[in-house]
Design a protein around this nucleic acid. Sequence first.
DNA 1: TTTTGAAGTCTCTCC
DNA 2: GACTTCAAAA
Length: 693
Amino acid sequence: MPDVPRVYHPRDRDIPARSEHAPDHLDGLNPEQRAGATAMGSPLLIVAGAGTGKTRTLVHRVAYLIESGTRPERILLLTFTRRAAQEMLSRVERLVGAQGRHVQGGTFHGTAHRLLRTFGPAAGLASDFSIMDQADAEDLMQVGRAHSGVAAKNKRFPKKETLHYLYSRHVNTEKSLHHLLHEEYPNFVEYEEEIAKIWADYTGRKSDRNLVDYDDLLLFWTLLLEQAPDLAARISGLWDHVLVDEYQDTNALQSRILRGLAGAHGRITVVGDDAQSIYAFRGATIRNILDFPGQFPGTRVVTLEQNYRSTAPILECTNTLISRARERYTKELRTAREGGEKPWLVAARDEAQQTRFVADRILELHEEGIPLREMAVLFRAGYMSADLEIELARRKIPFDKWGGLRFLEAAHVKDVLAFLRILENPRDEVSWYRILMLMPGIGEQTARAAIGSMADMAWTSGAFGRFAPPPRARNAHASLVQLLELLRVGAAPDDSQVSRDIARVRQMYDSLLREKYDRPEPRLADLDQLQVIAAGYPSRQAFLSAIALEPPSGTQDLASGADEEDDVLVLSTAHSAKGREWDVVFLIWAVDGYFPMARALGDADEEEEERRLMYVATTRARNHLFVTYPLQAYNTRRGADYTLDQLSRFLDRGVRDTMERVALGENDVPAAELAPPPTTVDLRALLRGRFGA
DNA sequence: TTTTGAAGTCTCTCC
DNA sequence: GACTTCAAAA
């Protein structure tokens, strides 16, 4: 998708790609963008505001490098998501032709993964390691937590999620445990020693089980570059140019990786916007942008301030919103897109009315000729779209939901994957435990005994078969042994039938699923989809690594396959919307407590990040922006309902003045729904009468 | 002793 | 809806 609205500028593909000294494709760039695309001879920092053609500049830079004689495979393009990488590569391809396809690219983690498979064995890392996702890592942390015994003695001991969170922050921010505890968990300061022990246990277990977590991917990459000069030379010698997108969202470790890769030759370009830094929770720090010129001497800085995306009224609103930020380094954005309507600030009575407004408006705009794929509904957290999803389904409006890792986090998907994992890595005790606990008659004790017994037998393939289960688990044991034998039969080294393995697992697992849930159908459908995805991978290892590193963005996404062509509305978390743009953007739940989220309040830095996040969300809009908030926001999920009836604090008077305020009428809601009249009917009494109770 | 079901608790963002 | 905790059942 071009950053420049189609009606005003020719699309990239309409411009013939010619390799002269000054390629024609650069004609479509403004002077700053052009400088960003062509500056050579020094490290380059491009500070680019929202909608200023940052991606466009980066794409043209890659094209320019290729046209200047750099071989495509000698260019490394690090992006935040796989989607962003693919989009850029396909745009490069349009500019320079098929050779653009050979540009190396992906996420930091994905690139680390490829490097470690190649260079890890030379540094003592077995090449067939398995990648753990966050939940796996937490589960493994739990093993050590239980083992230590402290958790049982102390009720207030940190949960496995917290232990893992602290560990991950330690690795990514390079802050000590002591420091982190005092800063974020003063109530756990007394457990510093115990936590350190559990971390050591965790590290040992990963090593024993040949497991690698997300943080290890970055850490091992860093260590190879810093501690193994011979390998470092090989790795940094792979690429002549390194380009990094979304630099504001990288962390201290990633900065070290870049210094290792390009510190010597300085052929590095980073692009970022401090106003859009929204991943501090993952250890990202805008210090990376601010300190870049110091770390890469001779850095040239190019600033992009001309916004091509949004209309003037929308930009006025978003500029005001971000002007409240405590710290800012980039200047205000300008736009040439005069005219257009002000953003709407829509007060709905409650969630139902908010939902109705969004659905109605989408249909109206669609009838006016705006395709669904040019519209998006954004929100702070994944669960906030639940009501809207039901309504959209009811009205048969197709949508993709981005963000959240729901699909792969679902218990039934993880269950099936656990089988594949133990085939791939028989020492994966977390997966063994998960599988064993599924079986009727096997509980915690039996599962642990079985795992212990297998460990004693050095995890040989028949180890589980030789485990002697207690009587009540005999049936379960027998059927599991049978299934595992069946799965191993076809497990030739070149086995490409991952989806066949899943089918075999399901012969047993589906019946367990049917017993466990009253409505198993959607879960069974998820497993069907899992099989479809699996069929696209050449090997089990490739499949398992890919889903850990590049989780499918949503279930709809998978069901429809190639979705780019379909006319489908997008629902997305604000985080997942970064880097994208739409003609029409709805931001729902602009309520204090939801956006910003309640738990971010009380910490000034977190609150600032929430503000930037709202800035990211609102700057996705090209022509129409609707911000909605229900006046009554019940939290009905729990008994103790509380009401959040305050408009988001970020939409202060000054911001509201840039918006068109709209109050939805009551007329579309039957009055009875608002305040039910009292009645003398006693429902309980009627029921008792009917059943004679 | 071990498993299982019921009741109670809390729910963010992502590689 | 998923996870933990606690008590009853096998």
